[in-house]
Structures are given as structure tokens and as C-alpha cells.
Simulated assay, not measured.
Amino acid sequence: MTSSQFHDHKVQQRKEHLPFDVESWYDWLGAGHTFATHFVEVSLAEAQALLRWYHHRYNSRDAPASEQVRALVELRDRLTPILDEAGKDWFIRLSSRSPKDAGFLDKSMFEEELERWRKVMQEDAEHLNARRSQADQRSEEADGTYHHPPDMDREKADKLLEANAQMLAFSQITWENQKTKGGPATSGAVLEHLVSSERVLVDLVEATEAEELFSMKIIARQWEPTLRHDFEFRGFVNNGQLNALSQYNHYCYFPHVLREKAALEKSIVKYWQTEIKPRIPLDSYVVDFAVLSDGRVTVVELNPFKTTTGACLFSWSHHREILESRPFEFRIHEDIVPQLPNYVEHALPEAFRQSAKDESLASLSDLQRLYAGESQTSSPPRCSIQ
């Protein structure tokens, strides 16, 4: 592929994704069917400054030039009137995606959550074994449903329970980590949070490579206190029909969610049919729903009906027929994912290690100090702030 062909590919890709940026679909739904949202425009120069800052933090490249630091300060100052209001919490993201892979992970909070989820899993162990004894042994490839044998080794069974408890605790703290408390100095911390995310890096690169179509905003969504990470679901709409629904977090087995499966399906499908379908002028899309603690259903976001969008408990390669056409299917894990103990053993320690490292990387204040007292110059100092 030539550089010209690569550029054309990026432009076409960006065109396909633009209708799914928050600012594109927010007015279709309005605050009545999603979360109250503020939009702050990001210029191409500011996006490039954010990219330079990311590479300085993680790839030991030169610090942003002085004019780029000024651009970052100006961006921070535009965020300030929205975020500095004390008493409000926010969820911050870009037009395209959220920085859910970023932020400091509190180990003590993890340990507290782990104890809570261990109790939940122990209480569910008897029900889990009963379902295992009644279920057919089905494979992941067949229908995405796992059922371990009821007579499995006790040590293996306990290892599965512990791995799921750890993943539940980890999911809870990473969820809480996305909540930004409003108040003084919040806007600067928000920018640092964004440039701690590889997801943000990828999206900014994609947006700046299609320069003639460049459009990006920082999205401040009011945090909904009744929103729960374990009650988020992804729906697949094709040719105007909701064909499939899945739990969003594909790692965890949620015993309490499984018990409510029938009621959840009924409420989400009804909500989509009566409130959402008439408002979205697209034939095919992926929609994320949240069921709030008071039972209300709302929309979290829209995504393209493409393989670039995660399929959760489905697979674009193995289950395309289900996703593209009826009959409708709703998937929730009925048992613990067999590979989860190995994933937890390797992925969680690395996530905590990387999180601790992030705390020592260059902040916006550090960048400002680099140029304090200097004449305005575009030549960055060759240094790395520890």
C-alpha cells in the first residue's frame, strides 16, 4: 500500500466513524435518553500537542515545544468553567472513545473490593454447581456459553472462584477510576488522564492522519451515580432490527446479573423498540445500554456495526449470522470463563505496575516549568521529567 493509498484508507475509515462520535448522535437522543453532556472543541494543533505530550511521557521523545504547551494550557482553560464546579462528578472521554485504560489503580481499594466479591462468589458457589450438574457440556465455539463439569477438582473450582472475584474487583476499581470529581484544578488532571491512555493515542493518531476531516472534542458527561459497570449491555442492530444483546464486560461472570436475565432482556428490548429505534436515523449500529439501579434504561453510546467494534460474548467471525439477522439472542455468562485464572495471573499485576509508573510521568505543570522564564521558542529542551 502506497502512502497515498494509506491516507485514502484513513480518510474513508474516518468518514465511516464520524456518525458515531458523541456529538453526532447526542442530539438524536438528548439528555432524556443519555447522560447530560458538554462539548469542548479540540483543534488540530491541540491534538498534535496532546500526541507530543503522550510520546514524551511514554516513549522518551522530546517534550512538547513551547507553543504546544501554550496550546495545552489554552485547552485546559476552556475545560475549566465546566469542570471546576464543585459537587459534580464527570466522565471524560473524546468524541470517539473513552480513556478507560488510563488512571491510577488503588491497590487498597482493590483489596476492599476483592473481599466483597469473594463473599459474593462463595455465596453463589452452590447455585453454580447446581447449574453445572443440569447443563449440557457446551463449547465456547458453539454458543459462547461455558459450563464446567460439576465434579471438577475442588482446587480448580476454588481457583476459578478466586479469579472471577479478582476480575470483578478489578473491574469495579477501573470503573470508579473513570469518575472525575469537579473542583479547582480538575481540568489539568483531566488532560493528564487523557494522555495516559493508549486508546486516546490511537484515536488522536487516526483523527490527525485524516487531517482534512479532522474533528475532535473532549466530552464531559455528567456522572450518573446509579450507573453500575455490571449492568451495562451491548446491542447489535442490523437493518433496523435488534438481533443480539450481550453483557458488556466479557471477562466476568456476574451471578446477580444472570438471575435477572429475563427481566433485563424484556426491559432493554422494550426500551429500544419504543424510545431509541424511532430516534436513530441509521439502519445498522451497535448501541450500549445501561440499566440503572432504579431500573431505568438509558443509552451509553453508539458504535458502528463493524468488526472494529467489540462483539462482547459474540464473535464477528463465528457469529456473524446471529448479529446480522434474527432470531434474537441475549448472552450472559452462565459460568466462569475457563481462561480467566491465567489472564488474571498475568494481566492484573502488569496493570498495577503500569499504573504506578504513570504517576511519575510529566504533568502539564511540569511542562510549563520547562519554559518558565524562557523566551518563546519552538525548540523543546531534550529532557525527560521523572
Rank of each mutant, 00 (worst) to 15 (best):
I276H: 02
D106L: 01
L242K: 08
A125E: 15
V200C: 09
P225Y: 10
S325P: 04
D8Y: 02
S355A: 12
D62S: 06
W117V: 11
V286Y: 14
S378K: 10
R279N: 00
E126W: 12
D283Q: 09
R57N: 15
E359H: 09
E232I: 03
D21G: 12
S317P: 09
M216Q: 12
S378T: 08
E192K: 07
H250R: 13
Q222F: 11
E301R: 03
L72M: 07
W223Q: 05
R76N: 12
S98R: 04
D89N: 11
E123D: 15
P99I: 11
E224L: 13
Q386C: 14
S267Y: 04
L160E: 05
K88S: 13
E192R: 06
V286N: 15
L44G: 05
W25H: 05
D89K: 09
K181I: 08
L364E: 05
K306V: 12
L191N: 02
A130K: 15
P341E: 12
A142T: 14
A71Y: 10
D158K: 14
H250I: 02
C312Y: 02
G240N: 00
G188Y: 02
T174P: 09
W28D: 08
H250E: 06
G87K: 06
T308I: 15
R154T: 12
W25T: 02
V205D: 07
S378Q: 10
H17G: 03
H148D: 07
L161S: 08
L242Y: 08
E301S: 01
D62A: 10
D335A: 00
L75W: 09
L105D: 12
A125C: 10
H33N: 10
V286E: 11
S43P: 03
S3E: 11
A45R: 04
A210L: 00
V337L: 13
R382C: 05
S24A: 15
E115K: 15
T309Y: 01
L128C: 00
Q48F: 09
K10D: 01
L44C: 10
D153A: 09
V22Y: 07
K181A: 10
P278K: 11
L51Y: 04
Y58I: 00
L194V: 04
V22S: 09
F39A: 07
E67F: 11
V297K: 01
D358C: 15
Y146M: 02
P255L: 03
Q386G: 14
T34I: 05
F35D: 07
E329G: 03
A49M: 01
G235Y: 06
A220P: 15
R14H: 04
R320L: 11
S379V: 13
